[in-house]
């Protein structure tokens, strides 16, 4: 397999070209956004809850194929799940889903969306925000 095919797997390209959960919720229960100042990737997420369950997630953003595809995959991974459980979601679970080798620089791209989601859950549900997300050296969240 060529280097291209390894990183830009068919499924990544599919999520990049046809992102799932793309857009903004009109009446969200929680909102957050994040940036990777190094490369300028930006992602904002709106969330809706049904009780403690995440009933809908939408994201918008600008950035590389990896950051956008990873966030698209993330939306599929979390809809219908318990907010507290998703707040604890280990990043390995998302990385497994992405399923490609990532250099340290690209890893930050892949995890930006997950960080924004955790910040949104923290704001909307008061779930704990692990330190790696609350004070990341490379990513900034609002």
């Amino acid at each position: 397999m060529s280097e291209f095919d390894q990183l830009y797997r068919e499924v990544i390209l599919d999520h990049y070209r046809n992102p799932r959960g793309h857009g903004v919720l009109e009446h969200p229960d929680a909102v957050a956004e994040g940036q990777n100042p190094l490369c300028g990737d930006e992602i904002s997420i709106t969330l809706a809850f049904d009780g403690d369950t995440i009933s809908d997630v939408r994201f918008e953003g600008r950035g590389c194929a990896i950051s956008q595809a990873a966030t698209s995959m993330l939306t599929e991974l979390v809809v219908g799940r318990d907010a507290a459980e998703v707040a604890r979601l280990p990043k390995e679970e998302l990385l497994e889903e992405i399923g490609i080798p990532l250099t340290p620089v690209r890893l930050k791209c892949a995890l930006l969306g997950l960080g924004v989601l955790k910040v949104a859950l923290n704001k909307g549900k008061g779930t704990p925000l692990p330190e790696e997300w609350s004070s990341s050296d490379d990513l900034s969240f609002r």
Binding site: S2, E3, L7, C39, D41, C64, A65, I66, R106, C109
Partner: peptide, 13 residues
């Protein structure tokens, strides 16, 4: 339509 990260990554290869 293509982010510089993706451009630079493919150029590296």
């Amino acid at each position: 339509g293509i982010h510089p990260h993706d451009v630079c990554q493919i150029l590296d290869w």
